[in-house]
Every structure is written in C-alpha cells, then in structure tokens.
C-alpha cells in the first residue's frame, strides 16, 4: 500500500521515472468497450481491455471459443465477426505485443506479473478474489475497462 501511495504521489508530481510500465492514467483508462463484446464476453469474466493482448492472441481465442479455457463460450456468427473486428482494431501494438503470452493468457504475460508483483500471495487466495482473472476484485471499474491506479482497492 505504501508503495502504491508513493507511486500516486509521484504521478501527481509528474515523476514518470517512478511509474510502473502502465501507470499512464489515460492508457489505463482504456478505450470504450464495444457493447457486443461486453455483453458476450463480459458475462463470465471481466471484459478485458483489448490492448491486454496482441491481435494474434485475440484471433486464436476467437476461433477457439468452443473450447475457451475449459468452457463453451461460443457466440453466433454475426457477433463473432463484430467482436473480432473490434478486437483486431484495438489490440495491443506496443512493446507488450512483441510476444503473445503463454496460452494467450493475460495473467501469464510478463507485464501482468510485473504490475502485480506487490500484491501479497495471501490476497490472491482471498475468497473474494479467487482467481487472477477476477479483475474487478481490486480494479473497481474493470467493468468499464478502467484499470487506473486511483480505482484500485485491494481487499484485505
């Protein structure tokens, strides 16, 4: 927590050298989420911002929805096309996109691990957290695609 506060103060003071890789508040607030994407994908998990994966990962995910991390997440053809187009247009293109994470899992991306390295192991195990995929447990505006520092509340 102390580190988080320090980072916030540093950000306010305009000290970019102290910020983590994705502490840019504008970037962390993300693009507006496509309603169809929110409806179809956000029902079972946070509607992860499209820039959390490179286009190649999204493509693989969208063609394998019948076996989507152990569940059937199929959508109709029209929805699949609409969502795929939007994901492709908004996928990560920066340095995070150089390598698709293992299994196309956001939580296995090096940047994800780096950004969360200060979260205690016990916090991840809390029943209200349950899974690293449960973004909204700490990112209170995850449903809107907002992962900015100011909207983080880590449960105890």
């Amino acid at each position: 927590m102390v580190k988080r506060q320090l980072i916030s103060i540093a950000a306010l003071a305009g000290a970019p050298f102290l910020q983590p890789a994705w502490a840019d508040e504008d970037a962390a607030r993300g693009v507006p989420l496509q309603p169809k994407y929110q409806q179809e994908c956000g029902a079972c998990h946070a509607a992860y911002p499209p820039n959390m994966l490179p286009a190649v990962s999204w493509r693989r995910i969208m063609i394998n929805l019948n076996q989507h991390f152990g569940t059937d997440a199929t959508v109709d053809a029209a929805a699949a096309k609409e969502i795929s187009t939007w994901l492709n247009a908004n996928a990560e293109v920066g340095k995070r996109a150089r390598e698709a994470p293992p299994e196309d899992r956001i939580t296995l991306a090096p940047w994800f691990k780096r950004e969360h390295d200060e979260v205690p192991a016990a916090t991840w195990k809390l029943p209200v957290v349950k899974s690293a995929a449960n973004c909204a447990a700490c990112h209170t505006k995850a449903d809107q695609g907002d992962y900015s520092e100011r909207n983080i509340r880590i449960p105890r």
């Binding site: 079972c44 998990h45 946070a46 209200v128 957290v129 349950k130 899974s131 995929a133 449960n134 447990a137």
Partner: peptide, 8 residues
C-alpha cells in the same frame, strides 16, 4: 452466483 473458474 459465482462463476466457478473466474469468480465473476
């Protein structure tokens, strides 16, 4: 309810 794998 609570999604069995994601907790949502």
């Amino acid at each position: 309810g609570k999604h069995a794998s994601t907790g949502k």
